[in-house]
C-alpha cells in the first residue's frame, strides 16, 4: 500500500502528512521538557543560599559539546539541501558527519562527563558545624564579597568504605581547590578552566555532615535535575542518531532511486527533530554549566 501524502500536500492541511506529524510530536516534546524545566525553576528558586551549586560542571567540555551539536544541526540541513538538489553522495557525506557528531556528543557525555561526577564526593555540613569547618569554607570572606555561603566540602573521597561502614566516623576528603584555598578570590566565582584538585586532605566528622554522597542524583536538587534533563536530552540524541543511521543505510539509496522527494522529506522531518534537540541544549548548557 502506498503511504498517502508523502510528497504532495494534503488538500485540507496544505502540508504533506509527516510535516504535521512531526510538529504535533514536537509540540508534545515542548510540554515534556517544559515540565522538567519548570521543575528546575521551582527547585532553584526555592534553594536555600549556598544549596544551588555553581561551577561544578566542566565548561570547556560543555562548550565543545554545544559546538558539536550546532555543527551537526548545520550538516543535517546541508544533507537535506543536497537531497533537494539531487546530490546523493553529498547527502551521504553530510549525513555521515551528522551521525558522527551525535555519537561524539553521547560519548563525551557518557564516558567522560557523567562518570567523572560519579567519582566525585561532597559532604554538606550541618548549619551548627559550619563555624568549625570555616578554614575549608571561608564563609566570612564570601559574606564580605556578597557571595552565597559554601555549605559543602568536596573532592575525592579517600576512604570510600566510609560511605557504607557506620563504624567509620570520618570522611577523608582530598580537597577541591575551593575548599583547599577558600580565601583565594579566584575561587569566589566559577571558573572557565576547572581548577586542579589540591593535595590537602580534610577529615570531616560524620556528626557534622547533613548529607554526604557522590555526585549522583541524590546529592542535590541540582544534580537530580541535571541528570534527569541531560539524561532525557541524551536519549533524544540517541534516538536521532538511530533514525539518521537508518536514513544513511542502503535502504535510503533504494528509496532515493524510487522517490527522491520522499527521502528528502524524511530527512527534513528527522532534521526538524534534531534541531529541536539542539534547541533544548541551547537552554540546558547555560542553565546548568554557566549560570
Amino acid at each position: 500500500m502506498e503511504i498517502p501524502y508523502t510528497t504532495t500536500a494534503r488538500p485540507d492541511t496544505g502540508l504533506w502528512n509527516a510535516k504535521i506529524g512531526i510538529w504535533l510530536f514536537l509540540a508534545s516534546e515542548v510540554m515534556l521538557f517544559g515540565g522538567l524545566f519548570s521543575a528546575y525553576i521551582f527547585l532553584r528558586l526555592d534553594a536555600a543560599p549556598g544549596h544551588w551549586p555553581r561551577g561544578l560542571l566542566n565548561v570547556p567540555v560543555g562548550t565543545m559539546n554545544t559546538a558539536i551539536l550546532i555543527a551537526s544541526s548545520v550538516t543535517v540541513v546541508l544533507a537535506w539541501a543536497a537531497l533537494k538538489m539531487r546530490q546523493f553522495s553529498k547527502y551521504k557525506f553530510y549525513m555521515g558527519i551528522t551521525i558522527l557528531c551525535g555519537i561524539v556528543f553521547l560519548v563525551v557525555k557518557l564516558a567522560y562527563e557523567w562518570p567523572i561526577k560519579f567519582h566525585h564526593f561532597g559532604a554538606k555540613i550541618t548549619p551548627a558545624a559550619l563555624e568549625k569547618y570555616e578554614p575549608y569554607l571561608g564563609n566570612a570572606h564570601l559574606r564580605e564579597g556578597g557571595y552565597e555561603p559554601r555549605v559543602e566540602i568536596s573532592g575525592h573521597l579517600e576512604n570510600p568504605e566510609a560511605l557504607h561502614d557506620e563504624s567509620i566516623r570520618e570522611y577523608h576528603i582530598k580537597l577541591d581547590a575551593a575548599n583547599a584555598e577558600p580565601l583565594n578570590p579566584d575561587n569566589d566565582r566559577p571558573r572557565f578552566w576547572p581548577a586542579p584538585m589540591s593535595d590537602k586532605i580534610a577529615h570531616v566528622s560524620k556528626d557534622d555532615v547533613q548529607l554526604a554522597s557522590m555526585y549522583v542524583p541524590k546529592h542535590s536538587t541540582f544534580f537530580a535535575t541535571y541528570f534527569t534533563i541531560t539524561g532525557l536530552h541524551g536519549l533524544h540524541v540517541l534516538g536521532g542518531v538511530i533514525v539518521f543511521i537508518y536514513l544513511w543505510l542502503p535502504v535510503s539509496a533504494r528509496l532515493y532511486k524510487r522517490n527522491p522527494e520522499q527521502l528528502a522529506n524524511r530527512v527534513e522531518v528527522a532534521g526538524l527533530f534534531w534541531h529541536f534537540v539542539d534547541l533544548v541544549w541551547i537552554f540546558v548548557f547555560p542553565l546548568f554549566y554557566l549560570l
Binding site: G14, I20, W23, L272, H275
Partner: peptide, 15 residues
C-alpha cells in the same frame, strides 16, 4: 534555529 534551520520563517499556516 527555529526560524532558519526549522524553516519557520516561511512555513504553512497550520504549523
Amino acid at each position: 534555529v527555529a526560524a532558519i534551520f526549522m524553516h519557520l520563517s516561511a512555513e504553512r499556516h497550520l504549523v
